[in-house]
Design a protein around this nucleic acid. Structure first.
Lengths: 257, 257
DNA sequence: GCCCCCCAAATGACCGGACAACCACCCGCC
DNA sequence: GGCGGGTGGTTGTCCGGTCATTTGGGGGGC
């Protein structure tokens, strides 16, 4: 029987750090479905890739940071199953949390076209006359409205999205699947507002219920590619954060109480 | 010339990792205003703390992740001021940000007494019949109302506070000065609400203006000692956060635009 | 068959070293 | 005064180790 994995070559003359090459290779293999049950151990990687343990640990450290794997003493590393659930901001965590609670999510598409928008274009660093991909949706959880979402996307990257069906999947999942786009940074601004009458009707809100307005810019590398305004029902959304000296402010999104 | 800083001791018998102790110490010194112009280099820290460069780098790595410092080849690390106070929670950063903008802050004391409160007592892990120290204040910035604040505090620790004057200083500053209490952890929950008529009057809010409700529990060690409900004018407060893969979600509080 | 103890294996926490790439600054030259 | 090149200092990238702590499972005793 041949060894399951022969030695693997990394390019030592490249300017790309070894740990980075190692990480890329591991991510590729992970996505390709290798390591279905067991992620290789550090010493194993040292032998296969012929690098020092420090280098392996540096690669694994980054992967851990991105939530791709999880490791702790005594146990070998565990590949994080399924989707890459890295830090994607508050909005993303909201939907994730709802899913974790077993709440069925879907969205109604209201508009999907190309149109110009001065403010959005400016946020994306494009000319005001550029036709942006525009998606307007109403998000529902267990058939109750949760949020009203409008997104303006970079037209070249988002073109494939106009033909898709978002009823049961998220924008980001589809975007990655159809165009390979995965955001890796951004900015969010969250404020409290009183919804207008129309908004209240759309979201089936009672009078005297407030809402959160989330303005969001998503970046791919250092280029903004998404501008998004989401109005979330106040009664179904709140920020929750833990802070501790010596640790960062860990935000968490809580659904309806 | 004597070295500016003598050697510093870390507890090698502790179960807390050296890099963690080092990080904590550096954060403390950073907060205390040391390193006003130059953050110490790696080799310098190696000598001062008598640890290996790996240990230093591990500590700095964590600080980098939390956005406390920034470093790159060739240049020495740069401290990112202000991030530390963000890690004390959103409310704290709000007041700090206002101060940084040169807005004069003061507060009007509405109530300062001892009273029972079932919910607050439960949050503090005390019997519902315990008489808690209660402070109710209206916070103003440039003589305009910003927030209405109610705080229930652990009676033994907060007793000295009842005699003090909070007009021009913050609760935490006074608490530390009079009783040596400095919170080092906690939890915040932020949601959007429509203020009642009374609240609107108190905060001089227009109709159709929403507010943020911040419920906060502050811990001293692992014991909750503060429960606080703050109502902040929506038009003068919003969350702003940067996120980036591999970095933590950095919240920042923006004042009125 | 069940439980407990012990041990192999894994990662975490440390230490030591060397070289490379890069930046800021000073100095000399024009 | 401005421009260019050297040079020292700093962080990034790698290598080599050792010991501690934790986990999970196998084996022995009952």
């Amino acid at each position: 029987m041949t060894p399951r994995t022969g030695p693997r070559e990394l390019d030592r003359r490249s300017t790309v750090p070894l740990w980075s090459q190692l990480r890329d290779d591991l991510m590729l293999r992970l996505e390709g479905g290798e390591f279905p049950d067991r992620f290789p151990g550090e010493m194993e990687l040292v032998e296969v890739y012929r690098v020092s343990r420090h280098t392996v640990r540096e690669a694994l450290r980054r992967m851990r940071q991105d939530g791709l794997i999880e490791s702790s003493r005594g146990r070998s590393s565990v590949a994080h199953p399924g989707v890459i659930s890295q830090q994607l901001g508050a909005m993303y965590s909201l939907y994730q949390e709802l899913e974790a609670r077993g709440i069925e999510q879907r969205s109604e598409l209201i508009v999907a076209d190309r149109r110009t928008d001065a403010e959005a274009a400016e946020r994306l660093g494009l000319s005001a006359r550029t036709k942006l991909v525009y998606l307007e949706r109403l998000r529902l959880g267990d058939d109750e409205p949760i949020a009203w979402d409008r997104a303006w996307l970079e037209p070249k990257l988002a073109a494939p999205l106009l033909k898709l069906d978002f009823t049961h999947t998220g924008l980001y999942d589809e975007w990655q699947r159809s165009a390979g786009v995965r955001l890796n940074g951004g900015h969010e601004r969250i404020s409290a507002v009183v919804p207008t009458k129309d908004q209240r009707t759309l979201l089936k809100m009672k009078r005297d219920e407030a809402a959160m307005l989330v303005e969001r810019t998503g970046r791919l590398g250092d280029r903004p590619v998404e501008f998004r305004i989401t109005l979330v029902r106040g009664s179904r959304f709140s920020f929750s954060a833990e802070w501790e000296s010596g640790r960062s402010y860990q935000v968490d999104v809580a659904g309806a109480s």
